[in-house]
């Protein structure tokens, strides 16, 4: 047994050495064509060199993945320590129980609920716009559109996804708001409604394209099974295709929600900077991201309380999107259908 393994490990080694000798002796190019089948020296993989390249490639790849992991860790740690510092000065119960957000005032209050309410408001409006729009375009694209319509609709959606958010912000402020003001007289110049609606348009392509992928992935055999029972196209889509694609659709919506929560430019430009508690979409309001922009642009000295609120708000934002992503991960794992 032992002898066997020794012999086995010996033999290739010997051959390996003689191979190297051969390689050194005869460069590849000089092998004549006739000897293709007989001459073993035509096949001389340079194992050592390829092992070294392998190692090099692996360390480079490892380095890059380490950089991204380290960045994430760095961000989380910075957020964490600065937030802890903040809560040393301002007790956490004040953060969660106060109802005004005035960190820059003399009588400072730190009710994060104010900023959260604004974020929830704009995000809800955005989803109310993007969910029907995105899902319907996904269904239309995958089930109803003729190739010609598809050829127009799909690039149009992609363009929508490529528009810079600052452009969306000015579109909301200078076009949508005046338009809405004609219908709703009491609408302020900065308001959550217009910002939320445009935010919804901005995230529609995300829902549309991810949902379309999910719908497209539903196997044809399932649709056939439904049609063969005498189902109409609508019944098949509603009762078979959409439920089968549900996990993908939900994942796309959650991704869109976390995009909407984190979206900064549109709300900073069109929703205003007025930190008020409440869910009135007609007035100016300040989301978490808009607050971060406001403070970052001002000249707040590092270490001051106002400076540290940035991190407390940032952490809140981070925890919210993280929670959504974890939920989405769990949901997809739990409800994904496996087809073979």
């Amino acid at each position: 047994m032992l002898l066997d393994s020794v012999c086995l490990s010996q033999r290739p080694k010997l051959r390996f050495n003689s191979k190297i000798a051969e390689i050194l002796a005869s460069p590849r190019q000089s092998v004549p064509m006739e000897s293709f089948s007989q001459n073993p020296s035509l096949w001389q993989p340079n194992r050592q060199a390829s092992q070294q390249t392998d190692l090099l490639v692996r360390s480079i790849l490892g380095l890059f993945s380490f950089v991204s992991v380290a960045t994430t860790a760095g961000i989380v740690l910075t957020l964490f320590f600065e937030t802890v510092d903040f809560f040393r000065v301002i007790p956490i119960w004040r953060f969660f129980s106060e109802t005004r957000w005035t960190p820059l005032f003399a009588s400072a209050q730190f009710g994060i609920i104010v900023l959260i309410s604004a974020t929830v408001l704009t995000t809800s409006i955005a989803i109310a716009v993007a969910l029907p729009l995105g899902l319907l375009s996904a269904i239309c694209l995958s089930e109803y559109a003729s190739p010609k319509v598809r050829q127009i609709l799909k690039p149009a959606l992609e363009v929508l996804a490529g528009v810079p958010t600052v452009v969306y912000g000015y579109f909301a402020l200078l076009f949508v708001t005046p338009l809405l003001q004609k219908i709703i007289p009491g609408l302020q110049g900065f308001n959550a409604l217009s910002a939320g609606m445009v935010l919804g348009i901005a995230i529609t392509p995300l829902i549309a394209s991810l949902s379309e992928d999910a719908i497209y992935a539903v196997p044809r055999s399932l649709r056939d099974g439904s049609y063969a029972l005498g189902a109409t196209k609508r019944e098949t889509i509603v009762s078979v295709v959409l439920p089968a694609a549900l996990s993908g659709i939900v994942a796309s919506v959650i991704l869109a929600v976390s995009r909407a929560i984190g979206e900064t430019m549109i709300v900073a430009i069109a929703a205003g900077q007025n930190a008020t508690l409440g869910l009135n979409p007609l007035v100016s309001t300040m989301t978490m991201t808009a607050y971060i922009v406001q403070v970052s642009l001002g000249d707040t000295p590092a270490g001051s309380i106002a400076y540290q609120t940035l991190f407390a708000v940032g952490t809140t934002l981070f925890v919210m999107t993280l929670g959504l992503n974890v939920f989405s991960f769990w949901f997809v794992r739990r409800f994904r259908e496996k087809y073979d």
Partner: peptide
Amino acid sequence: FQRPNPFP
């Protein structure tokens, strides 16, 4: 059908 295709 040839391959069983129950609905999910």
